[in-house]
Amino acid sequence: MMIDLPLDASLAQRYVAGSTTAAETMRVERAMDSSASWRGLVGAQVPAERLEHNLAGVVAELDAPKRGFVERSMIRVGLHDHVARLLAATPVMRRSWYIASVLVLFFGLAASNPDNTNGSLGIFLAIAPLVPVLGVAVAYGPGIDPAHDMTVATPLSGFRLLLIRAVAVLATSVVFGGIGGVLIAQSHGIRVVAWMLPALALTTATLALSTAVATRTASAITAGGWLIGVAVVARAADDFTMFGAPAQPAYAAAALAAGIVLFMRRDAFESVEVAS
């Protein structure tokens, strides 16, 4: 036979305050299991503020805008939600960078001549490092982010934001470049990844330069300098001297040097100089 527990406000109060004995607790919880009035009595002891606060949280969750595909993928890969949001919200031109990268790689492929696979590999290796350099150009800076003034005034370090975006750009470039490399791998084997260290060197050099000049200018300088260098070396020696085994450590060293310069000058990203 079920005996109903008579409603007892002081017992409910002590239950919510957490000071009831085991027997009392069991009594109250059993009563709540079957009596809406007991549930109401206990519920009334919880501060309204707390209930409103949590309701707002529920509403915030249910009304949250749906995440896009890129953002969901990033979270699935394990990125923190707020970092994924930062990256996904990179203002403006994300799409145009993807398109530009794909075009750049296809240009390389289109230039590939089945009779001269060495030549097409050369073109690919020359162009692939430009992909992250272009990405950096569109990923950061007052020219790119209309809300730059407001972003600068936040505790998020401009340098940290830059690094997050640069890493994202590099990671995506590796994917694009990897795909491109696979498509012309054929007989070239490991050489198709010879663009990666140059890419790293060029990207860090671009970032380091952007502590002194606008990001777009810096990208133009490194991209231009690179292409000229590739052309000169190709004419003087052959297509692969630039990418060969002796050259690779030089790129690694250049990347490290540029990284050090970037780190030492990182304060340049923390404020804005306005030419009024």
Binding site: Y15, E29, W38, R39, G40, V42, A44, V46, N54
Partner: peptide, 9 residues
């Protein structure tokens, strides 16, 4: 109706 007692419990 229910958030109160759930929170308490």
């Amino acid at each position: 109706v229910h958030a109160g007692w759930l929170t308490a419990r």
